[in-house]
C-alpha cells in the first residue's frame, strides 16, 4: 500500500510540474485535471470516501470544464 500511494503521489507531482511548464494552455489545464483526479484516489486511500467523491465530481470534473470554457472565451476562441 505505501508503494502504490507513493507512486501515485510521484505521478501527481510530475503532473503538477507539467501543468506549470507546458507551453500550450490546454495541455496544462488537462494536467491540472489529472492532479485532481489522482488526489481523489489518494483521498480514498486516506479513508475519506465523501471527500473523494467531491474531489472527483467538482475538482476533476467541473473545474476542468470551467477552465476550458474560459480558455475558449479568451485566447483559443479568437485564433480559430
Amino acid at each position: 500500500m505505501p508503494l502504490i500511494s507513493s507512486f501515485l503521489i510521484l505521478i501527481m507531482l510530475i503532473a503538477a510540474l507539467a501543468a506549470l511548464f507546458f507551453d500550450n494552455l490546454l495541455n496544462s489545464i488537462i494536467a491540472a485535471g489529472l492532479v485532481s483526479l489522482i488526489a481523489s484516489v489518494l483521498f480514498y486511500f486516506l479513508k475519506a470516501p465523501d471527500v473523494a467523491m467531491t474531489e472527483a465530481a467538482i475538482g476533476a470534473g467541473l473545474t476542468t470544464a470551467i477552465f476550458v470554457l474560459a480558455l475558449y472565451k479568451t485566447e483559443r476562441g479568437k485564433s480559430e
Partner: peptide, 17 residues
C-alpha cells in the same frame, strides 16, 4: 493569468490533502 489560476488550484488541492 490562466496559469496563475491553475497554480492556485494546485495549492488548494495540496492544502486539502
Amino acid at each position: 493569468m490562466i496559469k496563475i489560476l491553475i497554480s492556485l488550484a494546485l495549492m488548494d488541492t495540496g492544502v486539502n490533502l
